[in-house]
């Protein structure tokens, strides 16, 4: 039977090449980890359901983008239809941290007229010895960007679930508050298969139902 969800969110995962975007997603959706995997070419798709409150499930459509510069012309077309994003950098690679600003600008430029909720992810936190970016520093940057920060490791399964649920919950709250609304011709948020009972209770908090005048 098709699982039932109240909303579907489309999320995008961005960041420099080899920061571990695909590994993070594979761990989250398949529970697997491989030390080496092919570089992502263009954009790959993943999907998973998350339960944010008992009985309330949200379907996540996840877009894994290629980090290499040449693929930007392909990947940037995915920003527009995303409601959220994981901005990933490698804790053991200072350059990937320094590029965060470029990534954010790139995203902002192509997400118009919609908005995108980001979560900053410092990846590979298991490699303590090789670490080049401190937590404090990353937190400061996250604060400046106006986003939450989390450190993860796909290898040791640290905070993988949390990173996605934190972002999902964040978006869910905004949807509930009406800051983000379902719109036609936009894939970012969609309302899903809901049994009637749940649907009516959701209806009350469903955003975007304003007076037409």
């Amino acid at each position: 039977m098709e699982a039932i969800w109240i909303y579907q969110f489309r999320l995008i995962v961005i960041g420099d090449s080899t920061v571990g975007k695909s590994c993070l997603l594979r761990r989250f959706t398949e529970g697997k980890f491989t030390d080496i995997s092919d570089p992502t070419v263009g954009v790959d798709f993943f999907a998973r359901l998350v339960e944010i409150e008992p009985g309330k499930r949200i379907k996540l459509q996840l877009w894994d983008t290629a980090g290499q510069e040449r693929f930007r012309s392909i990947t940037r077309s995915y920003y527009r239809n995303s409601v959220g994003g994981l901005l990933v950098f490698d804790l053991t690679n200072r350059r990937s941290f320094e590029h965060l600003k470029d990534w954010l600008e790139e995203a902002k430029m192509h997400v118009q007229p919609f908005q995108i909720v980001f979560l900053l992810v410092g990846h590979k936190c298991d490699l303590i010895q090789l670490r080049q970016v401190s937590r404090e520093e990353a937190e400061k940057v996250a604060l400046a960007f106006g986003m939450k920060y989390i450190e993860t490791s796909a290898k040791d399964t640290v905070n993988v679930e949390e990173s996605f649920t934190v972002l999902t919950r964040d978006i869910y709250e905004r949807v509930k508050r009406g800051e983000i609304s379902i719109q036609e011709d936009w894939e970012g948020v969609k309302s899903g298969f809901v049994p009637n009972v749940v649907h009516s209770s959701e209806e009350a908090v469903k955003p975007g139902r304003r007076c037409p005048c």
């Binding site: 092919d38 070419v41 263009g42 954009v43 798709f45 392909i74 894939e187």
Partner: peptide
């Protein structure tokens, strides 16, 4: 189902089906 060709065929072209 709003599947775009670019979503799967980009890699087919970029890597000549090698993947």
């Amino acid at each position: 189902y709003e599947v775009e060709y670019l979503q799967f065929a980009f890699r087919w072209m970029n890597n000549l089906l090698m993947r």
